[in-house]
Structure formats: structure tokens, C-alpha cells
Design a protein around this nucleic acid. Sequence first.
DNA 1: CAGGAATGTTAGTTATGACTAACATTTTGT
DNA 2: ACAAAATGTTAGTCATAACTAACATTCCTG
Lengths: 149, 149
Amino acid sequence: MVFRKNNVLSASQEDYLEAILNVADGSGMARSTDIAVSLGVAKPSVTGAIKLLAHRGLVNYKPYGCVTFTQKGFSQAGRVAQRHEIIKSFFMDVLGVDAAVAQKAACKAEHLLGPVIISRMRDFTNLTKRNARRRRNPTRIAKVKGAKR
Amino acid sequence: MVFRKNNVLSASQEDYLEAILNVADGSGMARSTDIAVSLGVAKPSVTGAIKLLAHRGLVNYKPYGCVTFTQKGFSQAGRVAQRHEIIKSFFMDVLGVDAAVAQKAACKAEHLLGPVIISRMRDFTNLTKRNARRRRNPTRIAKVKGAKR
DNA sequence: CAGGAATGTTAGTTATGACTAACATTTTGT
DNA sequence: ACAAAATGTTAGTCATAACTAACATTCCTG
């Protein structure tokens, strides 16, 4: 296993971070097999990926032990998960595609859309939802003092 | 060079098809060096990719000659370029990001967004543009008989 | 039309990230 | 507590897709 210096996470590495976050789900620790199942890869692939993430200081690796995040790793994983959520919501709430399609597309798009597009998507989703609420219940919002139109 | 049977084009292969289309620009034939420059890769990478596309029946390859599309390759390249355009326009006209960012993101997203999302993007862009026209010139459209509001 | 410049190819290498088979360790059920 | 099951690792391989160095071909230009 040779490690090279490169500061940017690959799509694959981001996927692993995200999977660890999902699998750990609050407990803060993830098992190798669960990660493998979650990503649909074989166990040895997980070992390799974890070692790489450990080398980058994003997770704590101990042979035969559970994987835990470092602080840096945790915040990085959070950012990826946030991007995922924003994209998925945008696809669902703005474009109106169904959850499964949105989920799948978000998994791929989260690795390549930059901050500008992501933030526009977030704004757009919020706007769309706000408008939807207003349409459902126009009086309630119209009554709010000083509501921007 | 070993060729394996797999019907789906990789992102890289789609990039080459698109580059050939852009470089050929009507003439229908593309030179290796121009493709290399267009994609920012070295010349030997182009040779390899072209051979692969030729093996799949998408382009005609003759050593030291220009590359031309087969019918199949031409329509496939067209579909990729169309996806690219739809995504780019969506990012620009709907999300309002600038051309350079939209272009770059479209280059990557075009390989992974499925038909459902692409078609919603197209509809959305058209709708947005229509509305923009209406806002610019309200009377003309307001006069149309039975226009929905 | 000869010879250098431009263009294209071959051969061999590297990086990433998956896989399987076989082995090591840990956990669990009786 | 100990054997079997579950879990994790190592070693070796494969696929994709890039790269460089060196060689081959084609093209221009004097």
C-alpha cells in the first residue's frame, strides 16, 4: 500500500466517508462489513479505503477494530452528506423526480458539483418549498406582519 | 490493447465522442492532435481511445488518418452533446450561474444524470425562459386569446 | 524532391480502485 | 472454554485510463 500526497478527496473516498457516517448513525463507530454492504463493495476494498482515510487523518484505524472519525474526518463527512441532501432535495422538490431517482443521482453528483451550484440549489429548494406552503395556506402567511412578497 | 465486451460507454469515452464532434465541427473529421488539445490529454491517450471507439463501431479508424464518425457514433455523440447543452442551459438560465461554471459542471454531470432528470431540466429551462419573455413583454402575451395566467 | 517539422503510434509505466482466495482474529453459542 | 461462525486482513490480480520516451509516417517548404 503506497500513499501519495494529494489534498483532494476522490469520489470514492467521499463515498466511504459518507458510508461511515450513515452506518455509524450517531454511535460514531462503523464496522467494516456494514460499510461494505452499504456501498456494495467487497470487504477488502473497505480495508484499503479505511487505511487511506486513516493516513489522511480522517478516521482512526486499528486492525480488527471499529472505524471512528477524527474531528477533521467528521466535519468532512458532514459536508459531503450535506451536499448530498441539498442535491437530493433539489431533484425531488424542485424537479419533482421520485425519491429513488433523486437519491441515486445525488450519490453521483455530490462529488462533482461545485459550491456555487450547490448553494443555488439550496436556495431554490427553499424558495420552492416556501411557495408551496404559501399556495397551500395563503391566509396564514399573508397575515404575517411585514412578510416579504 | 485488449477489448472487453461492455455496452455502456464510460465517461471518458463519451468525452472523446463529444470532443470529436466539437473538433470536427461540421467537417465530420477530426485530427488526433486537436482532440488531444480539446480534452487536455496527451496524444497517445487519444490513439488508445479512438481504437476503442472504433472497436465499438462508433468511429472509423485508419492509422495516420483522420477520425470520422459512423452513423451510430454520430448519433451517440449527438445525444451526449444534447445532454451537455440541456444541463448547461439549466445551470445558467434556471440557477443563474455564470457560463464558465455551468460549462465545467455540465462536462462532468452529463455522464451521470439519467433521462428523467435531464428531461425535467429541459422542461424547466424552457419554462423559465418563457416566463422571462413574458415578464419583459407582458402585453403581447396578455392579449393572446384564452392565455392561461 | 529531400529533409525537417508536424503528426500519429507503440511500448512500457503508473495510479486508482475494484476483485478473489486464503489466512488471521474476534465473537458467540452451547 | 472452546469450536464454529462472523468479521477483518493480506497478497495477488485485473480493468481503466492516464502518462513519457522513442519510433513511424505524413506534410510542407526551400
